[in-house]
Design a protein around this nucleic acid. Structure first.
Lengths: 201, 201
DNA sequence: TATTTTTGATTGACTCATCAATCAACAAAA
DNA sequence: TTTTGTTGATTGATGAGTCAATCAAAAATA
């Protein structure tokens, strides 16, 4: 069995397994054994490649973040106008995989961990900043500077809030309804702050 | 030392200690010893009164919820018009204690736990439902039925979202700014859905 | 080509620490 | 003396991290 060049393969398998196990159990208190078993290797190997559970978790978050970034980049490239880019960002946030119960459970677990681990916190801050600045870039072309800041802040909060509410699975909101709520928010404010399409000078 | 009638005193001390320790450490993976020490008793006593860690945690969430409910009731009673009641609900959600980092960290930990414990989940659903129905009761008097549903959903999401974003402590938003964002949302939509003050028939 | 050496991949078995839960015992009030 | 409050000591389980040993492919050598 021992073929050369296994390292990247195992690393990926372990990261994917970690995400799955964490999503299923809804907590970071999963054992290295669980993760390793899901990845089809021994617990010792997980330690061999990642050194510690913490490092494996961090790699897992990085992987989630990278996927989210790639999705956003792709969606933005396919959009032509600022308004379309705005909608693309909203749509990406509610992608089916991202909005799946296990993914949301994993995100929640990471947010909770961020209270303790500075490394985890820093990674989540990157996500928050990126979402905000992406929204801002489009909004600045659609309304006054100050309004753009406020709307971006509000839209980001609404997106995150829809996620957390989804995690309780009582009266779950559909993906389309979530997108509609966020779009409505943006529309109402773009309309309220000026005629509808005159960007700041 | 053993004075009679200690049970309620100890229970409260343990629940309060649990909330504090959980908030400080940002996780439910705190030890019974930590909690007991903070409450000034032995770990064995915590088990004596609560039977298990799970039960103590549940009592802790109940206590948080009860306080939130009492705050809401008080705020609602002090408000006269539907519009005032709406603002009162928003203001209560962002109470200083509720918005404190430790409280938010505790909430986050509970949400995460809800993925595993059906009991915890049920309690959090109660909170979500209560917030929604409180908002709805006021909104129904201010706009059409369908609009009320959507605005309530959106406002609740925004409130929860502002909480979760606060937990990262990057670019923290002030209490007043959070209230303003939520008020703006409600105002914009009340304005958009009809002239401004004609309730549904 | 055949043989030896090196090296990466992999694991079972073990250590060490932590923690929830239990229990027997004791102290003071009633 | 019965009841209530309280604890120290102990147990049993669990889980992260370590380590020495094994295995097979690749590289070097003859």
């Amino acid at each position: 069995m021992p073929k050369i060049g296994m390292e990247p393969v195992r690393r990926k398998a372990l990261v994917d397994a970690a995400l799955r196990v964490i999503g299923d159990q809804g907590t970071l208190s999963v054992t290295m054994s669980d993760i390793a078993r899901t990845a089809g290797v021994s617990p010792a190997l997980a330690h061999h490649y990642f050194g510690s559970k913490e490092q494996l978790l961090i790699a897992t978050i990085r992987s989630l973040l990278a996927q989210l970034r790639d999705d956003a980049v792709a969606a933005l490239q396919a959009a032509a106008t600022p308004r379309e880019r705005l909608s693309a960002l909203i749509r990406v946030s509610f992608r089916a995989e991202q909005f799946a119960p296990e993914t949301i459970a994993a995100w929640l677990a990471f947010y909770s961990e961020a209270q303790r681990s500075e490394d985890v916190r820093r990674l989540l801050v990157i996500y928050a900043r990126r979402l905000r600045s992406n929204l801002l870039a489009s909004l600045r072309l659609l309304c006054a500077f100050d309004d753009a800041e406020r709307i971006a802040e509000g839209a980001a909060a609404m997106i995150d809030g829809l996620y957390i509410r989804q995690s309780l699975r009582s009266a779950p909101i559909s993906i389309e309804a979530s997108i509609a709520l966020t779009e409505d928010y943006v529309n109402a404010h773009l309309r309220a702050t000026d005629g509808g399409s005159s960007p700041s000078p």
